[in-house]
Amino acid sequence: MTTHYLVLSALLFAIGGVGVLVRRNAIVVFMCVELMLNACNLAFVTFARQNGNLDGQVIAFFVMIVAAAEVVIGLAIIVTIFRTRRSASVDDASLLKY
């Protein structure tokens, strides 16, 4: 049964990854990153169950904390960029190039 959870986790992770690559709105990109993190959490929880100890759940807990911190900072950055450039598209912020 745990195999199904892990495959689901892999599927969600891949979808999130594709989302990061194809979406241009920085906020949506962020959401896709969150989706990838959640997929990882599912894998951790499943492994905890597979191995019969709670370490996986503890790590999933820490991942949530880190994700929360990341969202706060990431969104603050997006707001700052939007304030100066009037745009939330990641493609518009492409000054650092050849």
Partner: peptide, 10 residues
């Protein structure tokens, strides 16, 4: 799904 997998706190 977490709850189903014995992780009610998470």
């Amino acid at each position: 799904l977490y709850a189903v997998q014995d992780a009610p706190f998470l």
